[in-house]
Nucleic acid binder design. Structure first.
Length: 293
DNA sequence: GGCAGTCAAGTACGC
DNA sequence: GCGTACTTGACTGCC
């Protein structure tokens, strides 16, 4: 099991997700921002290696406005060497990097415009991973999307639109269960229709399920990962006490995490800790896991 | 320097 | 049909 955290390292001063307002766009600002973001990503990966963290989610803001029509900056060519070096580092140390485009990415939308924009954004994500030169275990994780009043038809639309996606996106795309609409069982149906692997989000599962235990859900989702997809991906976060179900806690709740480990014993997977204090919780989780083993 | 409002993008829901 | 909540970190304007 590799343990990771998303996008930001709070122990470091730099951020790999610096952006700017659309109104401020210029090629110069774009170049500087991307250069700084890539340099910070290098710092983060070095920090991770030094601390035994081999799993990391790269921020979608690495290249701001990459899929926006305003972007006329050939970042792919300008920074190809930087990407190659970063990817070489990832591969050399057997790390896994993934990406998670946000809620606006909907390939089952009703409006053609939304699908077009989503595909552009997915192509950008695939470009980043391809430029790094990392293998197909490095995934792009999205949710199934909206229900639009008819979940079944919306799932069918997902699978139909999935078939039309560029191969570079298709081979990296995975779906994650969400806390309101698409449960693990729904994602399994999407898997049946498309063949794509399912990421299990443990907290979402606790809020939205059909009675499966966590272990049963993990057994189901694990079966969707082929050898070339790598180990199954699992997202875990502690529920913030007293807050709405699904709200991420500030720090890892060790008691809850122990229970999670007990419930998932016997399965191997890579674990993404979606906790606000980021790498600090990842380090505590690593320590706990090594003590148990 | 600090704070509050706002930011490319969407859906769901209540009125 | 319209406004608002959802979630999140960072930018931006204002004091």
């Amino acid at each position: 099991m590799r343990i990771g955290y998303p996008c930001i390292n709070l122990s470091l001063q730099c951020r790999s997700s610096r952006t700017f307002r659309l109104k401020s766009y210029s090629q110069e600002l774009m170049e500087k921002t991307v250069r700084d973001n890539l340099s910070c990503l290098q710092e983060i990966l070095q920090y991770n290696l030094a601390h035994g963290i081999l799993y990391f989610r790269i921020s979608s803001d690495l290249i701001p406005f990459a899929s926006h029509p305003i972007c006329d900056f050939p970042w792919q060519e300008v920074f190809s060497e930087e990407f190659k070096a970063l990817g070489g580092f990832v591969k050399k140390h057997k790390m896994r990097v993934t990406m998670h485009p946000d809620q606006f990415i909907l390939i089952n939308a009703l409006e053609e415009r939304i699908i077009t924009n989503s595909v552009r954004e997915l192509v950008y994500h695939a470009e980043v991973l391809d430029l790094l030169g990392v293998d197909l275990t490095c995934k792009i994780q999205i949710h199934v999307g909206g229900a639009y009043g008819d979940k079944k038809r919306s799932m069918t639309r997902f699978s139909q639109n999935f078939r039309e996606l560029p191969p570079a996106v298709k081979r990296r795309l995975v779906v994650e269960n969400d806390e309101r609409i698409y449960s693990v069982a729904d994602c399994m149906e999407v898997h049946r229709l498309t063949g794509i692997p399912v990421v299990l989000d443990a907290l979402h599962h606790s809020a939205n399920n059909r009675g499966e235990t966590l272990g049963e859900a993990l057994s189901l989702t694990s079966s969707t990962w082929r050898k070339r997809d790598g180990l199954p991906m699992v997202d875990y976060s502690s529920q913030k006490k007293g807050a709405k179900i699904g709200t991420h806690a500030y720090a890892l709740d060790l008691k809850d995490f122990r229970r999670f480990l007990a419930e998932t014993r016997g399965y191997d997977f890579d674990l993404m800790l979606e906790v606000k204090n980021k790498e600090r919780s990842a380090l505590r989780a690593l320590k706990l896991v090594s003590e148990i083993e």
